[in-house]
Amino acid sequence: MLNSSQACIEINGIQTDLLIQPFADRIFVQVTQLGKVGNLVQVSIPSTALLTSSGVSNSSGLALPTPPAAIQLTPLFGSASSEHLRSLHSLYAAQIATLVWCAEGQAPGPDRRSVIVGIALRPSMQTVEEGFDGHERKTFQGIMQALANMLNRVA
Rank of each mutant, 00 (worst) to 15 (best):
M1I: 03
L2C: 01
S5E: 14
Q6N: 14
C8H: 11
C8Y: 06
E10Q: 13
E10G: 07
I11W: 04
N12M: 12
G13L: 02
G13I: 01
I14W: 05
Q15G: 01
T16A: 03
T16F: 04
L18H: 03
F23R: 09
A24Y: 07
A24N: 13
D25K: 13
D25Q: 13
I27A: 07
F28E: 10
V29W: 05
V29E: 02
V31T: 07
V31F: 04
T32L: 03
Q33P: 01
L34R: 15
G35D: 02
V37D: 02
V37K: 09
V37F: 04
V37H: 09
G38A: 07
G38D: 02
V43E: 03
V43K: 11
S44N: 12
I45M: 03
S47L: 01
S47V: 00
T48D: 00
A49P: 00
L51I: 10
G55E: 11
S57M: 13
S60N: 15
S60L: 15
G61T: 14
L62E: 08
L62T: 11
L62C: 03
A63I: 14
P65D: 08
T66I: 15
T66R: 10
T66H: 03
T66M: 11
P67F: 08
A69T: 09
A69H: 08
A69Y: 06
I71T: 12
Q72N: 09
L73W: 09
T74N: 13
P75D: 09
P75H: 08
L76M: 14
L76W: 12
F77G: 00
G78Y: 08
G78K: 08
S79A: 13
A80Q: 07
A80R: 06
A80F: 03
S81P: 01
S81K: 09
R86A: 14
R86W: 07
S87W: 06
L88N: 02
H89E: 13
S90C: 08
L91I: 11
L91F: 10
Y92K: 04
A94C: 03
Q95H: 14
Q95R: 11
Q95S: 09
I96R: 01
T98K: 06
T98A: 03
C102N: 14
C102R: 06
Q106I: 15
Q106K: 10
Q106C: 12
P108A: 13
P108H: 10
G109Y: 07
P110S: 15
D111A: 06
R112F: 07
R113L: 00
S114F: 05
V115L: 01
G118P: 00
I119W: 06
I119T: 15
I119L: 14
A120W: 10
A120R: 11
A120P: 01
R122N: 08
R122G: 02
P123E: 08
S124E: 05
M125E: 15
Q126K: 08
T127K: 15
T127C: 08
T127N: 11
V128E: 06
E129I: 06
E130G: 01
F132W: 10
F132N: 04
F132K: 07
D133F: 11
H135S: 05
H135K: 12
E136Q: 14
E136T: 12
R137M: 13
K138D: 14
K138A: 15
Q141K: 12
Q141F: 12
I143M: 14
M144I: 05
A146F: 06
L147G: 04
N149Q: 12
L151H: 07
L151M: 12
N152E: 13
N152Y: 05
R153C: 02
R153S: 06
